[in-house]
Simulated assay, not measured.
Amino acid sequence: MHGIKRTRLTPQAAEAKRLKELSKIEGYLALEDEVLTRKRTKHLSEESLGKTTALLDLNPEFYTIWNFRRDILVSLFPSLSPEEVVSHLTSDLRLTTSYLLVHPKVYWIWNHRKWCLESVPVGPGDTVKWKEEFWQGELKLVEKMLDADARNFHAWDYRRYVLASLPVQRPLSDEMRYTQGKIESNFSNFSAWHCRTKTLLAIWENEGTSEAQVRKTKDQEFELVTQALWTDPGDQSGWLYYRWLIGAEPPLDVLEREIQNIRDLYEAEPDSKWCINALAHYILLLARIDSSGADKSSVMKDEARRLYRRLEDVDPDRRERYKEMGEW
């Protein structure tokens, strides 16, 4: 790095460093061999559990060892009280938390957390309250993870899993507010936009929302996503949500309105490939569904061709694709 004085190792220091690293590698390989041997021989004990911890500390992406760890725990649980089982599961949740802080995008760590939560035994007294404490803890954890990296799609997937698993379901309106906060803090958060589509669909399905109310909600969503498109027309996230909102068979007046909005943006951002692409796409869609006549349809198709030719200049890496899109 600039401004940092480099120190050159002496031959003796370099050799000492090499030997130290070699020792670490040899130690890791020996531990790996021991744990895999215990797995092959079905050595399912507390001692083996400790060995898996030591190996996972060094390599938390070793999914085979996570599988072995679960086999060990399953074999131990029948002889333990519910409280002791919970103690083991709580320890594993703490363990995976420490790993996620360093490796937030490793599937196997998230999967093990799911297994732990799904293995919580029936508690004494109020079972719902007993499990609710675990799930609420998970919700707090994943929100901290998303505060640290709001675009971690693993954490978003896990959040949906947790919300669906809560013994007492939260209002979907809470999730709408949560995603909006994340989107407004960073319009390029694709995962938040995606989660918003899932939440809206769930609301409409659960509440049997009328077509008129769906349209009203979509109009509000158009206002939100339009802010994103004007803020950063070069970001794909908002455009994908925009396409979801319009859908494959939009009302004619909605399509005409949105085409005009895109035209306004195109005038301000003539080199935005996403803007040009969207304008061409929706003009062609309008040409297909507008019954005003063949002449008008022909004019719209000609405009779409010109836009695709414009894209060949704006985005030359995809020139052949745009040539194909402009041929029909």
Score class of each variant (00 low, 15 high):
Lys105Cys: 11
His112Trp: 03
Tyr99Gln: 11
Arg69Phe: 08
Glu83Pro: 08
Arg70Tyr: 04
Lys51Gly: 08
Gly125Ala: 15
Asn111His: 15
Lys114Gly: 15
Pro121Lys: 03
Thr52Cys: 09
Tyr63Gln: 01
Leu73Tyr: 04
Ser48Gln: 08
Pro60Glu: 01
Asp92Gln: 07
Ser87Thr: 14
His43Arg: 10
Ile65Met: 03
Tyr99Trp: 14
Val35Met: 01
Phe68Asp: 12
His43Lys: 02
Leu101Ile: 10
Arg69Thr: 09
Leu73Thr: 10
Asn59Leu: 09
Cys116Arg: 02
Leu89Arg: 08
Asp57Thr: 12
Asp92Ser: 00
Asp57Gly: 01
Val102Leu: 12
Ile65His: 08
Glu34Gly: 05
Pro121Ala: 06
Trp108Asn: 14
Ile109Ser: 00
Phe68Ile: 08
Leu100Glu: 11
Leu73His: 07
Val106Asn: 15
Thr52Pro: 09
Asp33Arg: 15
Gly50Arg: 09
Val85Cys: 12
Glu84Tyr: 01
Val35Asp: 03
Leu56Val: 11
Thr53Pro: 03
Pro124Val: 14
Leu117Phe: 13
Ser45Tyr: 11
Arg38Met: 15
Leu36Asn: 05
Glu34Pro: 06
Leu101Ala: 14
Leu73Ser: 04
Glu34Ala: 12
Tyr63Phe: 03
Asp33Leu: 14
Val86Arg: 11
Lys39Arg: 14
Ser81Thr: 12
Glu34Ser: 11
Leu36Val: 02
Leu58Asp: 13
Trp110Asn: 06
Asn67Asp: 09
Glu61Pro: 07
Phe62Tyr: 04
Val128Ile: 15
Leu55Glu: 04
Thr53Ile: 07
Tyr99Val: 07
Arg94Ile: 09
Thr41Ile: 14
Thr127Asn: 15
Val86Gly: 06
Leu36Glu: 00
Phe68Leu: 01
Ser91Asp: 02
Asn111Ser: 11
Arg113Thr: 02
Leu93Ile: 12
